[in-house]
Design a protein around this nucleic acid. Sequence first.
DNA 1: CTCGGAAAGTTGGAGTTTCAACTAACTGCG
DNA 2: CGCAGTTAGTTGAAACTCCAACTTTCCGAG
Lengths: 152, 152
Amino acid sequence: MTQWLDEAQQQHWRAWLAANTLLLDAFSRDLQEAHGLTMADYEILVRLSESADWRMRMSDLAEATLSSRSRLSHQIDRMERAGFVERVACTDDKRGYFAVLTDAGWDILVAAAPCHVMSVRERIVDVLTPEEFAALGNASKRLLDHMGADPA
Amino acid sequence: MTQWLDEAQQQHWRAWLAANTLLLDAFSRDLQEAHGLTMADYEILVRLSESADWRMRMSDLAEATLSSRSRLSHQIDRMERAGFVERVACTDDKRGYFAVLTDAGWDILVAAAPCHVMSVRERIVDVLTPEEFAALGNASKRLLDHMGADPA
DNA sequence: CTCGGAAAGTTGGAGTTTCAACTAACTGCG
DNA sequence: CGCAGTTAGTTGAAACTCCAACTTTCCGAG
């Protein structure tokens, strides 16, 4: 016998789902309109910029951005065409490649970051009380843990 | 001067983002493996099944599922091909169409629902304390309100 | 050394989403 | 009435994602 959700649970669940969709849409739209970037582009730029030598192995980057290898590979194709990253062969492991941030990639990240942070603030951080926001973050962290995901 | 996020805020934000991605992936995968449905399919089936006469105007359905008209149109194409819905011309407004749930659509929804609810429980509802889950839902609701979204 | 399996990454095609352009029908104002 | 502007919905192409198959290289046991 299925244990259905009660009315309140149903509402929480749907709110969570709807908020995700609308927020993610909004962030993408903001980034897109202002700088022609997608969320995926942006996350890759961020990860690379935070890495030593502005570079990361394809697999590590895929894992960090919660993306499949295949998806990342196509994604890096596009970003390479756009001039934001370069592929550099890894000499230690000849199967491997690094995705390396270019100056152009850095520049667009620097240009886009303030506007992205702004929209995260406007739509989430500053909308909630600090307690509510922390609760949202902590609940998310618990859910991640339960799935065995690294919180990094 | 950009007001960056502090360390804790950064972590909450990233946790939220990661949890969304992983959870949504997981729900899709569960539905896909068990019944060959996508989340989008499932939500449409749910909405239609909850509507009078198992039918909804295309625009209303698009709005309810937070999808663009174009996306919904393609989506309904596929579901019509699969036999889960039908398009029925609207006689009042000759521009309009109803998406109507078929018996086959109802059947697959009935088959898929328990397994979907199960996975929502397993991955969210039963993972958190009732307080944490409520906090997640309420925060989401607040964010929706702030975006002017109807909580229905 | 060498061979089988695992890991890194890419590829192509099919499926999905987005965007802009389009048709057809409705609405209301002069 | 009659036509300008809106609304409903579709379409096709381009962008993106997913999946399965593939190549190359690495690793470890014998």
